[in-house]
């Protein structure tokens, strides 16, 4: 189980701190696949990465991250080494392209395991079992990354990053560069990994909310560096309480909706600058139901079991 309390991370720039993530408090249960959604610059990637790779220009300000009862020293890059990969694993956005092109896949995995003081040959049988599971031939291990298609690379990266059964897997936009057919396969693999207990908790960072509707158990919506709402997936889609969540979901074109019949509407305006954001709720300027209370920061409160929201209108 992952517990995040009051996590605040800023970016240091020449002109001052960019308040990319403020007071994030939430939990991800064992076996939960949580989707982390929001628009570009909302802090979702900052949140995901700060749990595992908090490095400059990211600056740790305050907060705690507890995984399975043990606090992660996220502010210390060195001490995090022993948790990374073994307990917390990250699949970054362009993982497929990050593979070293001059190394065979098998050799690369062996080196990775060695750096964690583990033996490749001992793990090989399990590795092969997992390759079978994602329908990749064992020959992949003898191939160079360039010989694999985008989908195959993505599946390889997924197998490798979950090989040591980490407690927490963070997947950052892993489907956005894929075609719909491969996208679906990759998503279903995430569910499969959870079902088989390869990972306990999963955080999927994506801007594509329809993907989350398919596979996430819960969705956490962020806006301009703050948490807006977290709830079970169905609740987010059917009974969202934060105006931002409602409007965001309402703006999504869906198969079955044509503009002649149902004209969707976007959210007027744009998010505030995070260099010197206005006080209070950051959605205030674009919010149709904002009132005087909104100049104070709304707390992220549980309004019904598992449903958290930060909006003065929702309590």
């Amino acid at each position: 189980m992952l517990q995040v309390e009051n996590l605040t991370v800023y970016y240091k720039t020449l002109r001052g701190y960019v308040r990319a993530l403020e007071r994030a408090t939430f939990t991800v249960a064992d076996g939960e696949i949580m989707g982390l959604a929001g628009e570009s610059g909302c802090g979702k990637t900052t949140l995901g990465h700060s749990i595992i790779y908090l490095r400059p220009p990211m600056n740790y300000i305050e907060g705690r991250v507890v995984l399975d009862g043990q606090e992660l020293p996220i502010w210390d890059m060195e001490r995090m080494r022993e948790f990374r990969y073994r307990h917390v694993s990250l699949i970054p956005q362009y993982a497929m392209n990050a593979l070293n092109p001059t190394r065979k896949i098998g050799k690369m995995i062996a080196e990775l395991l060695e750096s964690r003081e583990m033996n490749y040959d001992e793990i090989l049988p399990e590795l092969k079992r997992r390759l079978d599971l994602v329908q990749l031939s064992h020959d992949v291990l003898k191939m160079y990354p360039i010989e694999l298609s985008g989908g195959m690379k993505q599946r390889t990266v997924m197998v490798v990053s979950t090989l040591l059964n980490p407690s927490l897997l963070i997947a950052d936009e892993i489907t956005s560069a894929l075609d719909v057919s491969t996208q679906k396969a990759v998503c279903e693999m995430l569910v499969e990994f959870r079902d088989r207990g390869f990972v306990k908790s999963t955080i999927i960072i994506t801007h594509d909310i329809s993907i989350l509707y398919q596979i996430a158990d819960s969705i956490l919506v962020m806006y301009a560096g703050q948490l807006s709402e977290k709830a079970p997936t169905e609740t987010i889609f059917r009974d969202a309480r934060h105006p931002y969540t409602q409007m965001l979901i309402g703006s999504l074109p869906k198969v079955g909706v044509r503009y002649q019949e149902e004209r969707l509407r976007g959210i007027p305006g744009s998010p505030p600058q995070l260099l010197d954001p206005p006080p209070g709720c950051r959605f205030r300027d674009r919010c149709p139901v904002a009132f005087d209370r909104c100049v104070e920061v709304p707390p992220f409160l549980e309004i019904s079991p598992g449903h958290f929201v930060a909006c003065w209108r929702a309590y």
């Binding site: 570009s40 004209r263 509407r265 744009s270």
Partner: peptide, 11 residues
């Protein structure tokens, strides 16, 4: 474009 502004350009 961001989700919340996309549909306006589409419209």
């Amino acid at each position: 474009l961001d989700a919340s502004t996309r549909v306006d350009v589409l419209n």
